[in-house]
């Protein structure tokens, strides 16, 4: 199935250089515009000032700490989020958002793109 995400803005927060590159190019190959990839929570939150994304792929542990503040910001403003983490969601995040979609690393980038594509609200 060839996805068409033309016109969608997707935020990527991932500090693993290789994974970040792969995800970004996978989304761009599907026609999406990529915000990031961001290796730090702080930089991703700062980028939200220039506009909200339509969806986000979030790693849990970033260079400057846990992704929670960014995740809460996005989920509370109804931005669809897919988590991809080496371990699991932080306890308080999992408890607060029991329906959060979580993939455990390694997960192939096309599966993550598919998962987020299904949750994107067409504009």
């Amino acid at each position: 199935m060839k996805r068409n995400l033309a016109g969608a803005r997707v935020l990527i927060a991932e500090d693993n250089i290789m994974v970040a590159m792969d995800l970004a190019s996978e989304f761009e190959a599907s026609g999406a515009e990529v915000m990031g990839p961001f290796a730090r929570v702080e930089e991703a939150i700062a980028a939200l000032d220039s506009g909200k994304p339509d969806g986000a792929i979030l790693d849990v542990n970033l260079l400057d700490g846990i992704v929670t503040p960014l995740a809460v910001n996005l989920i509370e403003t109804n931005v669809p989020v897919v988590f991809c983490t080496g371990v699991s969601l932080p306890t308080e995040l999992g408890a607060h958002y029991p329906d959060a979609q979580v993939f455990i690393k390694p997960t192939s980038s096309d599966r993550l793109v598919d998962a987020l594509a299904l949750r994107l609200v067409p504009r």
Partner: peptide
């Protein structure tokens, strides 16, 4: 052990992405 587990997972993710990206380019 936890740290090792985390790193192994991270490295597998790195390899997977590297293969995927290399395939595309």
């Amino acid at each position: 052990v936890q740290e090792l587990h985390h790193r192994v997972k991270n490295n597998l993710a790195t390899v997977q992405s590297m293969v995927n990206f290399t395939l595309r380019t």
